[in-house]
Design a binder for these strands. Structure first.
Length: 432
DNA sequence: TCTGGGGTCCTCACACCA
DNA sequence: TCTGTGGTGTGAGGACCC
């Protein structure tokens, strides 16, 4: 793609030039706002490093990672988020690559969410850089939705130096499509009565839940637009892509999306995974990494005040085949050692077909509040005395004071011990 | 071309039980 | 006792989203 061909380059999702027009100004039934930050990580980096303004900037890790965000200058060369770094750099060799700083993005995100919270309590944060608002209750105080949207955009720009786009519509799904079509730094209103006409201008990939595979499956039936999905009989649609997805897509295509804006969100699972710099053939190295991941998971469970009942592992081999195994425990846990022991057993049961490992992940599912969950002492806990969990809570405290690197599992701090990995001892790594 | 990390939801298969 | 059936829980994997 040639530089300057921006309209096609800026969005990850499919867009339609026809959809990006004035759909009227009737705001009577449109109380849902979708606020989406523009090239969020990259924009935050430009605020921190103004010298990079105007240059193609890519936020991402090493050669084996993908693009997390790119400025619009980089996108003009065809660089997009989720694109492999190697490919992005071939498309735009002059790009400035900046490593991600998630803490900085989190701080800006918290600030932006505070701005949204000052408009209405009905804010549903979807990810670090986007949120839905139901502004029905704020209309009398602040004016119609588009006035509220412009207020939000002005506040975000003046307080944080970054821009956002806002979609205004009758439902969450359409509001999200509006913000996508308003990008960058814009606003789009689709009146309730124009919803179906707006949707009919879009390609099928614009529908929520239609990715590459579903798009291909529908294309085999000659269905490539939202209009064609809407005109298709639900039963046929369900035969093509499944019962639940078929009914869901048909509803979306007709603008039916009854989901309310729900503030507050409870996690269903907490996990961690990592891709090795080079594929690993030594099971002990994979196991050592799994120990770190189990430790990370458990610390996050404790921080969230939850325990999990199912431990799941994920392994990706060098041929990009992904395998998963899971095991449900008798009593839920937030103890890293318990998570690791189950993960290790699951890892041992995976047939890698002799291939080295590219990625390993550990996840804990079936979460419930720790205070409501029964606790079963681990075998190494003396009755009434301090146990494994207490040790890990102490580790949490050390990390809170001195940073995550201050203390870690001895296995990872001292190198892999091939002879006895049945116990995990915490050792100080560095205390400065 | 060469594919991250964190998460959700769905489908299908299978075991177990009434 | 054997067989069929439906509900439920679990496990594996796929697809999708940001």
């Amino acid at each position: 793609m040639a530089p300057g061909d921006e309209d096609a380059a800026v969005s990850r999702g499919p867009r339609s030039a026809q959809a990006r027009r004035d759909w009227g100004d009737d705001q009577s039934g449109t109380s849902i706002l979708h606020v989406d930050m523009d090239a969020f990580y990259a924009s935050v980096e430009l605020v921190r490093r103004p010298a990079l303004r105007g240059l193609p900037v890519i936020v991402g890790g090493g050669q084996r990672s993908v693009v997390l965000a790119a400025t619009y200058e980089a996108r003009a060369f065809g660089v997009n988020s989720a694109m492999p770094m190697a490919r992005a750099l071939r498309a735009c060799p002059q790009a400035v690559v900046v490593p991600p700083d998630h803490r900085a993005y989190h701080e800006v995100s918290v600030g932006v969410m505070e701005v949204l919270g000052s408009v209405t309590a009905l804010v549903e944060q979807v990810s670090i850089d986007e949120a839905f608002l139901d502004v029905a209750g704020a209309r009398r105080r602040m004016g119609p939705p588009t006035v509220i949207a412009e207020h939000i955009r002005a506040q975000v720009r003046s307080q944080f130096g970054v821009t956002c786009s806002v979609g205004v519509a009758a439902t969450k799904f359409v509001a999200k499509l509006c913000s996508e079509h308003a990008k960058p730094d814009g606003m789009l209103l689709v009146p309730k009565a124009a919803t179906v006409d707006f949707l009919r201008t879009l390609p099928v990939g614009a529908l929520w839940g239609v990715g590459e595979k579903t798009e291909q499956a529908l294309a085999r039936w000659g269905v490539t637009t939202v209009a064609e999905v809407a005109d298709l009989d639900v039963g046929t649609l369900q035969r093509i892509i499944g019962k639940a997805a078929g009914a869901h897509l048909h509803d979306l295509a007709w603008g039916r999306d009854p989901r309310p804006v729900c503030p507050g969100h409870t996690d269903k699972s907490i996990g961690a995974e990592t891709t090795f710099d080079t594929d690993v053939g030594d099971p002990a190295v994979v196991e050592a990494r799994a120990l770190e991941l189990a430790d990370t998971c458990a610390a996050r469970l404790r921080r969230a005040g939850v325990v999990g009942r199912t431990v799941a592992i994920k392994v990706r081999t060098s041929d990009f085949r992904t395998l998963s195994r899971s095991c449900t425990l008798v009593t839920p846990t937030d103890v890293g050692r318990e998570v690791f022991l189950v993960a290790r057993r699951l890892l041992a049961g995976v047939d890698l077909r002799g291939l080295p490992v590219r990625l390993v992940g550990v996840r804990v599912e079936g979460l419930s509040r720790a205070q409501d969950a029964p606790r079963q002492p681990t075998l190494d806990e003396a009755v009434g005395g301090p146990g494994r969990r207490d040790a890990e809570l102490a580790v949490d405290e050390v990390r809170a004071r001195f940073g995550r690197a201050a203390i870690g599992p001895a296995t990872t701090a001292l190198g892999v011990d091939r002879h006895d990995r049945s116990t995990t001892t915490f050792a100080p790594v560095e205390l400065s």
